[in-house]
Amino acid sequence: MPRSKLDAAARRNRILANTIVIALAIITLLPFLWFVVMSFKPADDIFAGIDGFFFTPTLENYTSLWNDRFAGSMLNSFITSSVSTILALVIGTPGAYALSRATMKQERTFSLLILASRMAPPVAFAIPYFLVYRYMGLLDTRTGLILVYLTFNLALVVWLMRNFFDATPRALEEAAWIDGASLWKTFMVIVLPMSGPALVTTAILCFLYSWNDFFFALTLTRNNAMTAPVEVVNFMNYEGWEWGKIAAGGTLIMVPVLAFSLLMRKYLVAGMTAGAVKG
């Protein structure tokens, strides 16, 4: 009975594949889980080798961390990331729409400009921004960070949203024009509302990239505007690495991005693949 034989083989394959995937998932997650677990370990157990494998969880790393300064840096991270995301969306979305709908000779030039500014290594911007901010007094300010985050966020918004607009039919807009709606009104009332999911996707990615930034915050802030990733590195102090605190801080920094990513997985994946799969 070849049919059932085939089924049996297929089932075996599935079981095998499932097992491999479970193993791979564990390997992928292990380093991350180890780190999170470490943040709940008492300092002694961190260095205790295998003896520290079982331990009584403690929140002391978190409480010792939650002083004004770390809270302040989390706030800075939050403000700079969200404001920059919103600005980029407000400025970039109409532009992306125009780029998608208009027929322009310079299109390839724009694409190159946008892609290149997304691809440029941060150090290329950090040097001139540092020099200019020295004179403008924007070093170590949230405004300064927000502006510099626009370098990649704006490009990201235009890139992703144009992809989205390219894929949406124009029938509705054209119908609205025929009904005498103005171009601006059509954009606001017809186009924007149907872009909801795309806007969410883009916003998540912008927020993620800004939140995850380390380089600009390291070079362009000192204390007032210092963001959480830099503050965590700061725990490597003169007296040594405070592993418990570092782990707790790192865990706190990843909570928002992890929560976002897991809750909105579909959007996130859509955004990340948009550039590559469809162009």
Partner: peptide
């Protein structure tokens, strides 16, 4: 997806 969305600095510390 987890490794990719973690802040790179946290990945480095891990």
């Amino acid at each position: 997806l987890v490794p990719m969305v973690l802040p790179p600095i946290v990945v480095a510390i891990i």
